[in-house]
Amino acid sequence: MEFFVGIDQVQPEEACTPVKQFGQPWPDHVAQKYVLRLRLDEVLEVLSTPYEGLIRELREDEIHEPLEEMEGDPRRFRELGYPSIQKLWRANPAVLSEVIKVYLHGELFDAVLTARPELGGRPFYVVNSVDRVWVEPKRLCLMGDVYRRGQGCGYCAWAFNAQAVAGNDAEAGSEKPSTDVLGVNPGG
Rank of each mutant, 00 (worst) to 15 (best):
P18L: 04
Y147V: 08
A115N: 11
K101T: 11
R132I: 01
T114A: 14
R75Y: 03
V184W: 03
S84G: 01
R116L: 11
L44Y: 10
V133T: 07
E68I: 14
P93K: 03
A31D: 13
F4I: 14
V10D: 07
S48G: 04
I85G: 09
Q11K: 07
E136H: 05
K20C: 02
L67K: 08
E118G: 11
N185L: 00
K87C: 03
L182R: 00
V112F: 05
K20R: 06
L36M: 07
P177N: 13
R149Q: 12
N128D: 09
E14G: 00
P74Y: 01
V133H: 02
V30T: 11
R132T: 04
G23P: 01
E13W: 01
G106K: 14
G150N: 05
G152T: 02
E45D: 13
F77T: 05
E60V: 13
L80K: 01
G183C: 07
G6S: 11
V165A: 15
V95I: 14
T114K: 12
A31S: 15
V130T: 09
E62Y: 13
D131R: 06
Q24N: 08
A170D: 07
R116Y: 10
P66C: 12
Q86Y: 09
L140I: 09
E13H: 08
I100T: 14
Y103K: 01
N185A: 00
L88N: 08
V102T: 12
F77Y: 04
G23V: 01
L108Y: 09
E57D: 13
R78Q: 08
A162Q: 13
T17N: 13
L58H: 03
E107V: 04
R132W: 06
A91H: 08
R116P: 00
R148L: 10
F22E: 04
E136S: 06
L54H: 14
A166L: 10
R37I: 07
V95A: 08
V126G: 09
K87E: 12
N161F: 06
A162Y: 09
L182T: 00
A162K: 14
E175F: 15
F77M: 06
E65S: 13
D28M: 05
D61V: 10
D180N: 03
M143N: 07
S84M: 05
V43A: 06
R76S: 00
E79S: 01
H105V: 07
C153W: 06
E62I: 00
Y155D: 09
L182P: 06
